[in-house]
Amino acid sequence: MYTQALNSPEEGSHAEDAVRASRFQARIDAEERIEPNAWMPAAYRKTLVRQISQHAHSEIVGMLPEGNWITRAPSLRRKAALLAKVQDECGHGLYLYAAAETLGASREELVDAMLAGKAKYSSIFNYPTLTWADIGVIGWLVDGAAIMNQIPLCRCSYGPYARAMIRVCKEESFHQRQGYEIMLTLCRGTAEQKAMAQEALNRWWWPVLMMFGPPDQASQHSDASTKWKIKRFSNDELRQKFIDATVPQAQYLGLTMPDPEMKQDEQGHWRHGPIDWNEFKQVLAGNGPCNRDRLAARRKAHADGAWVRDAAAAYAEKRARRQMAQAAE
């Protein structure tokens, strides 16, 4: 139960805190991992709980757009692969909630905040999956962007998060290859299939670029996160790395990037045209095409499951009571 003990107010004077804070920063600077029972500044803990829980919520809400195609997958092989992938994402969510719990937050309170609409999850999951090609694009680009974000997190200063990311990244890179393979199959298929692939790329490309967050000059959290080695690359750096990796893959597929201004500079970087940050802001504010549907689906699952969770708790209690009564005989 040490996660609860961590909830108790930090004792000691401000002077002591200053000493602890400087020791803490020295450990970070020396690339040491911070473990759950170590002292840490309240703001570090808060930042991590926010980031890890947002990540967990993203995995769970992210089950919905892909889950939308499990029952309609076009072959048994694809159906099994998609189901396994969505199941992996649920596993990532559980794993991440557990990492957040090491910081003294409980899964229930984190989930409640998400259901109440108070906690964020990745903006990308507020877009609909309209055709089978969307499943290919999500694997290829959404998981591709997630990997780009998450690989540096494998070296994050907080031990449980870093270790969770190592496992998550392994599975994500498998998903990414799977998504690309779906795209390859579509692009080598009939004209109708290739058009389906292009149309899906057109819809997802810009929202995927927004996954890396606002441009560096507008990012709120980066400074402290960088100092604490939670974040090692800026939003724009990661976005550029992602685009440079992705453009040749699209070329290999024979697809056109839906950005008329995209061109390669002298250093070989592919430079994108302007991103519609107003769209991003609207999606974060709850006005994306699926925000309401996603939250409604999660709320419904939670509400419909309440009697099941109550039953499990009631049964466990009855059982414990019976065992105690037996032991007393």
Binding site: L64, T71, K79, A84, Q87, C90, G91, L94, Y97, R309
Partner: peptide, 18 residues
């Protein structure tokens, strides 16, 4: 598989999918 994403607890999302 219709339960995937809609189960009463996450552990059951996993188990039913499995």
């Amino acid at each position: 598989s219709e339960w995937c994403g809609h189960a009463p607890v996450l552990e059951e999302d996993m188990a039913l999918s499995n």
